[in-house]
């Protein structure tokens, strides 16, 4: 697993790397984005269709 050990460097992690490695933050992004743009928006579209008289 040569690639697996490749990250064991002595350099400090950059801010982007810290963000990308933050499991909780990534989980939050992965839940919020599709929930807002796909699910909630889609549900609102269906819910606001006028009922036929």
């Amino acid at each position: 697993m040569s690639e697996m050990k490749a990250n064991e460097t002595k350099k400090p992690l950059t801010v982007l790397q810290r963000i990308l490695d933050d499991q909780n933050f990534m989980l939050m992004l992965g839940l919020v984005m599709p929930t807002v743009f796909y699910t909630l928006w889609g549900v609102m579209e269906v819910a606001t269709i006028p009922i036929a008289p």
């Binding site: 990250n7 460097t9 990308l20 490695d21």
Partner: peptide, 11 residues
């Protein structure tokens, strides 16, 4: 058991 970032495969 690892240092630095997660290995890419685990990521």
């Amino acid at each position: 058991t690892y240092k630095g970032s997660l290995p890419l495969t685990v990521y």
